[in-house]
Design a protein around this nucleic acid. Sequence first.
DNA 1: CATATGATGGACT
DNA 2: GTCCATCATATGG
Length: 177
Amino acid sequence: MPLQREFFLKSAEEVAKELLGKILSRRIGDVVLTAKIVETEAYYGEEDPASRACQNGDLKKTMEKEAGTILVYGVHNNWLINFVTGKEGKAEAVLLRALEPLNFSGNTKGPGLLTKVLRIDKSFHKKDICNCEELWLEDGKAIKEEEVVESYRIGVKKDLKKKLRFYIKNSEWVSKK
DNA sequence: CATATGATGGACT
DNA sequence: GTCCATCATATGG
């Protein structure tokens, strides 16, 4: 049972936290890859100095779209995948930073790496995660509250004072520096 | 078309 | 921790 749109209809912060432990599935031809989400970050487009969305028109517009919209952001030679959250017009999104492979092997310890392994690129931009044949989310085993760690975001020039990075404690797959 | 930019990753100290 | 290769975008002429 894929996650419903209501799941994304909360604040980016909340969705980021609840996304931990959920299952991401990617269909490539006849093969379905599944992975557990172990690290996320919340982004706010309007007053978030870390996000390019505060200056970039198209990205900001996408973040303001309906909850559940997939947002793919290209930087350096990588693709970063986000899910739009909150109400339409709100400019919020959650970035996937790391996954734990379940039925395959690969290095998914990082936002640019996981998209490479799952072969996610700009063709997913603006698609609907709740209604996509090739990429979707499913509920996973619930994780305990004490396993969720809050932290400041990584690789961001100017960050907000809030802790917007969430990851699963003791996971081998969390990216770190 | 030219150029500036960066939500990275990997190599190195 | 620091340095930097590298390239898809955004933006301006």
